[in-house]
């Protein structure tokens, strides 16, 4: 095992407001990590900093490189299709991905399209929330990357789609790759996590093995996560 992602002394401010500070995080390869925290805690920001979509102070290294352009070649991020025309057909979106990402794998993409029942003839504007989320997952997993960043992939979708998305994660995540899944509701993904990272008070509040939490604290992940917030309230 080696360090796939290493974040050192990361600070990020925007509009004169400090959003994240003293972020230090190391994640090794082959893991599924739950990135937890309340809405607005900075989970998405942290992912955007890793991809280089946002600029902070500090060092972020992915697969041994800290240069933004090279880092991008190792990271597959669910980017919610920002910038593509809403009249674009789903099939064209796959073509676009294939033409700009050298690690796009057609065989993987075809099986994902079939498994997730994606209709290539629909326009982006015609997709329901659940279909769009499935499309985003299919696009993200179609790349053979080292680090997958899934930003709230279960937002507002039905339980059948959720199960399919979880299954496609388990089925198509390359074994040596690491996946970070952000969510503010942990129960639905608790069983597939190796580790959890909690973003709270503008920094990484804790980073633990999931089964260690269950063994040492005799509590579930959700319960543990909530206890972090109760503890915080008593301190006030």
């Amino acid at each position: 095992m080696s360090d796939l992602l290493k974040i050192e002394n990361l600070i990020y401010s925007h509009s004169l407001k400090n959003i994240l500070h003293d972020v230090n995080l190391t994640v090794s390869d082959g893991k599924i990590v739950g990135l937890l925290g309340e809405n607005g805690a900075g989970k998405t920001t942290l992912m955007r900093l890793i991809t280089g979509s946002a600029h902070g102070k500090g060092t972020i290294t992915v697969a041994g490189t800290s240069k933004p352009a090279e880092r991008k070649s190792h990271v597959s991020f669910t980017e919610h299709l920002g910038g593509l025309s809403s009249g674009m057909k789903v099939g064209k979106v796959f073509d676009f991905y294939q033409s700009v990402y050298p690690d796009f794998n057609i065989a993987r993409s075809n099986s994902l399209i079939e498994f997730l029942d994606i209709d290539k003839n629909l326009k982006l504007s015609a997709l329901s929330k659940g279909m769009k989320e499935k499309l985003i997952i299919a696009l993200t997993l179609s790349r053979q990357a080292d680090l997958y960043l899934l930003d709230e992939p279960f937002g507002g979708i039905d339980s059948m789609s959720r199960k399919k998305i979880i299954n496609s994660i388990l089925k198509w995540k390359p074994e040596e790759s690491t996946m970070i899944i952000s969510d503010h509701y942990v129960t639905e993904i608790a069983s597939i996590l190796d580790e959890i990272v909690v973003v709270k008070d503008k920094t990484i509040n804790c980073h633990k093995q999931a089964d260690e939490i269950r063994e040492d604290n005799d509590m579930g992940i959700e319960e543990f996560y909530e206890s972090l917030y109760e503890g915080g309230k008593q301190d006030d």
Binding site: K31, K163, N167, L170, K171, S191, D194
Partner: peptide
């Protein structure tokens, strides 16, 4: 291992 992971919905490492 991967099939078992899918059967029980857990991750491969576990």
């Amino acid at each position: 291992v991967r099939q078992l992971a899918l059967d029980v919905t857990a991750n491969v490492n576990t």
